[in-house]
Simulated scan of single mutants.
Amino acid sequence: MAEVHILGSILGCSDFDEPKGLFCKFHLESGVVDQTEWQVLGGDKSGTTQVDCSGGEGLDAVWDHPIDVHFACPTLVGWPRLRVEVWSRDHFGSNILCGYGMANCPMQSGSHEIEIVTWVPVGGISERLSTFFLGIKPQLQDPTIVANTRPGEGRFGLKCESAGIVYISLEIMTAGLNKNGVETVG
């Protein structure tokens, strides 16, 4: 069985409306093919960064949170996607949604810099009033639809607006793909 090792870090973010108290939840989603799931050999597919209250050079938040997941994969179908949610913690300790985003992990071995443009759902008039007066933004009931890319499913049809950008640095290492007739060329 082929193997894919994804190493890297969630560096930080910029261009969010709430520049203080930001943190990021992330999840690496991989596919299921013919009842055979990509198997995690090591590491965590999901996690949460620390809350950054300072920001940095041109960034709203600096997290530098590690990602380290090792997969065994039966096929290339279902290649991992990185789903992120950016949240802000206000001075009352409440968490406020700032954005959802998703990026496909590169299939090419080597170093990759990724920018994930995030978005937030925009509801009807009552949700907009709640956002304006209370700061409560609409949230998805099922955040996994962010990574669903099938036509007619996922976020297609949702009204949304862009939020900020999350910066990711990844190292992709593969083993055993050539035995299965897969060749990645750079």
Rank of each mutant, 00 (worst) to 15 (best):
P74G: 14
P74N: 07
T75L: 03
L76W: 06
L76R: 12
V77C: 06
V77M: 10
V77Y: 09
V77H: 10
V77T: 08
G78K: 10
W79V: 07
P80C: 07
P80Q: 10
P80V: 13
P80N: 07
R81I: 04
R81G: 04
L82K: 02
R83I: 01
V84I: 15
E85I: 11
E85R: 07
E85P: 00
E85G: 02
V86R: 11
V86L: 14
W87Y: 11
W87A: 01
S88I: 05
S88C: 15
S88E: 15
R89K: 11
R89I: 10
R89F: 00
R89Y: 00
D90E: 08
D90I: 04
D90C: 09
D90N: 15
D90A: 04
H91S: 15
H91W: 05
H91E: 13
F92Y: 14
F92Q: 10
G93P: 02
G93N: 09
G93F: 09
G93K: 02
G93Y: 02
S94W: 01
S94Q: 13
S94F: 06
N95G: 10
N95V: 00
I96L: 15
I96N: 11
I96C: 10
I96P: 03
L97Q: 12
L97Y: 14
L97S: 12
L97G: 08
G99K: 07
G99C: 08
G99M: 08
G99N: 09
G99H: 07
Y100S: 06
Y100Q: 03
G101Y: 04
G101E: 01
M102D: 14
A103Y: 14
A103G: 02
A103P: 04
N104V: 03
C105M: 05
C105I: 14
C105K: 00
C105F: 01
P106L: 01
P106M: 04
P106H: 01
P106G: 08
P106K: 00
M107L: 10
Q108I: 15
Q108N: 07
Q108Y: 05
Q108S: 10
S109P: 15
S109V: 09
S109G: 03
S109F: 09
G110I: 06
G110R: 13
G110A: 07
G110D: 04
G110Q: 09
S111F: 14
S111Y: 14
H112F: 11
H112Q: 09
E113R: 05
E113L: 08
E113G: 01
I114S: 01
I114N: 00
I114C: 01
E115N: 12
E115L: 05
E115S: 15
E115Q: 14
E115W: 00
I116H: 03
V117L: 07
V117C: 06
V117E: 05
V117N: 06
T118K: 12
T118F: 10
T118M: 10
T118A: 11
W119Y: 08
W119F: 14
W119A: 14
W119Q: 12
W119E: 08
V120C: 11
V120L: 08
P121G: 03
P121E: 02
P121N: 04
P121L: 04
P121I: 05
P121S: 03
V122I: 15
G123E: 13
G123W: 11
G123M: 06
G123R: 08
G124R: 12
G124N: 15
I125F: 13
I125S: 07
I125V: 13
S126I: 14
S126P: 01
S126T: 14
E127H: 12
E127A: 13
